[in-house]
Nucleic acid binder design. Structure first.
Lengths: 342, 342
DNA sequence: CGGGGTGATGGGAGCGCTCACGCATGTAGG
DNA sequence: CCTACATGCGTGAGCGCTCCCATCACCCCG
């Protein structure tokens, strides 16, 4: 219906308030160094005209965008089967909006998308990036580093052993895995198996490491490779039962996998936890609570991780380069949540 | 390490190529009306300098942003339990990137967020908006209409009866429901129940309507209210079995609900589909395939819906106001996918 | 062989904002 | 009472780009 009436400018507000552009600008940006009566007049003019600053014009001179890119490389359909990313997104979104930053979402699939993303980031459209790098051999993190954009990673990047400069937020995968396995040991279990995630992801590799830490040199048949999915968990559990019929506990690399394992155990007539105890990882609620029996698992606060990623990035952005010690990576603790399955 | 070297400007490229700013601009924006040799020289200069246009400067004059907001009102945690949004986001993302548009994600929760979003949209940061309005009484769509931003809705907004101007993309909830129920009738079932979704969402209401269309005046005890969740499906199924032990078919408003129903049926010793046939709605794969028995359901192409939403919006944006007939809403067909449960 | 196209290029203005100044005030100190 | 400095406010420039228009070259035709 109505033509998009051209929005009022600073100039218009200034005219209405009977002051200069600069004064309006000062008021709009915090009002420092302007006396109260004027501030009031300007505020009112802004209100009456419904003035909203033109972000493009502002960015043009400040070179800031108040926008952050979230890059999610989507190797498979994991995003959609696992509530993980959604929760993390929510945490990120909360933190960003609290600081008036916008969230620009970049979903990628395939190689050509990588260069597109890299170019976009290098193009200086956003002030920083939050990147989920899932795979060890993913070229994306490298490209992004090259783009010279401040970046925080979600999950430890494969090439980072903690010694280099990449900033990331992760949970204590290794420690959490240790806790889980120790709990099983404490339950008196002797044949404790591990169904892994895809080992080109650091989270999966670290969880396997935690398992090994506690188990010492386990029977290699007790470790079955899998892929963080329910179907994968089913296949792995079947295989495991064939190889080691005497298995009395399973530590699955994530909840979805554990769910698959539970299902197969039930089908094969094994009671959980009496015959076989099962522990998962993540504590994504709808999954763990729906399962029968309810799943003992290692909880990580996913939303909080998202929030912290954003906070870390924003801090790095506001802080002028004279860094008060560059912000360093964060590793969040995990907690074992005991339910019925172990 | 390296200072963010100030990026080359159009001017710099022009100098290097020995042409004017205007010419470089023309080349960068498609190269029409510039002769081949010059085009080539400019391209090379762009390449050598690694020139990337400054989007802020460009927007300042064109008043276009090549960015679209995606607003997801998140009443509960549905986003995270249901792959629905994630799939739709992916479709949207694909379409937007194909047309060099950015996706600005706005997640909201609670009333104050609504005004924030409305202000943001009114602020002209984006060219248009894709909005998921879940609830009948949601004030957000109204606020957004008021902001004067071209908008396409995901799912029929509650206040739209098809006669007004809101543009939306939805699937044929009513027709799909009819198909499902007719299939059950064709199977010879007589006591066909319906577990609804939350009826303040049009999708749920429309599916109920489709059920009624086929059933005529069903026994009111055969309709049980629920909420699109697994847990809700369990409760509803339990209730249903208590009320109508002779029920021989269930049409659940979505797959998650159907999953809950399946579980309770199994617990209560009813065979599916022999004793009770079950049909879901959505066909979100990991859910339908994992279930035992696999779930017969009404498929809607969710990713395609996202893609179409984006396409509709982009078309509305490029087309100058002299509309060739305003783009109208789209209702996608559904298909019944027969698996084991009915 | 000259006038009037036609189409390719350059010049200039200006989008809306911030920021460095510069000029007024106001207050205190000599 | 005048200078010295702080503080409040206005002025002007310019961020990097697009777009309008003037310019110029070239070609065709009379």
């Amino acid at each position: 219906m109505s033509e998009a009436v051209s929005r009022p400018t600073l100039e218009a507000v200034a005219a209405r308030a009977g002051v200069s552009r600069a004064t309006v600008s000062r008021v709009v940006n915090g009002g420092d160094g302007v006396r109260e009566p004027l501030v009031e007049r300007v505020r009112q003019a802004v209100e009456e005209l419904g003035y909203v600053p033109n972000q493009a014009a502002r960015s043009l001179v400040t070179k800031r965008h108040d926008a952050v890119a979230v890059v999610i490389a989507e190797p498979e359909t994991r995003i959609f089967t696992d509530p993980f990313f959604a929760l993390q997104l929510r945490g990120i979104s909360k933190e960003l909006t609290a600081h008036d930053n916008q969230l620009v979402l970049l979903l990628t699939e395939g190689r050509d998308d990588h260069t597109r993303v890299a170019r976009y980031l290098a193009g200086g459209h956003v002030d920083g990036a939050l990147v989920f790098s899932l795979h060890l051999d993913d070229p994306l993190p490298g490209l992004i580093e090259g783009a010279g954009v401040p970046t925080v990673f979600g999950g430890r990047p494969g090439w980072s052993d903690g010694s280099n400069s990449a900033v990331y937020v992760d949970c204590d995968n290794r420690g959490g895995a240790q806790d889980a396995v120790r709990h099983l040991v404490g339950l008196g279990r002797r044949r404790i198996a591990h169904i892994t995630g895809p080992l080109d992801q650091t989270s999966a590799a670290d969880r396997l490491q935690g398992y090994r830490d506690v188990m010492g040199e386990p029977d290699p048949r007790l470790v079955v490779l899998s892929d963080f999915t329910v179907g994968g968990g089913e296949r792995a559990m079947g295989e495991l039962l064939d190889r080691c019929p005497d298995v009395d506990a399973v530590f699955a690399a994530n909840d979805l996998t554990a769910l698959g394992a539970l299902r197969v155990l039930r089908e094969r007539g094994r009671r959980v936890p009496e015959d076989v105890a099962v522990i998962g990882f993540d504590d994504v609620l709808p999954v763990t609570e729906q399962s029968a029996p309810s799943l003992t698992t290692v909880r990580q606060d996913i939303e909080e991780m998202g929030r912290l990623m954003a906070r870390l990035l924003l801090r790095a952005l506001t802080r002028g380069k004279p860094a008060t010690g560059a912000p360093s990576s964060l590793i969040l603790p995990t907690t074992l949540v005991r339910r019925a399955s172990a």
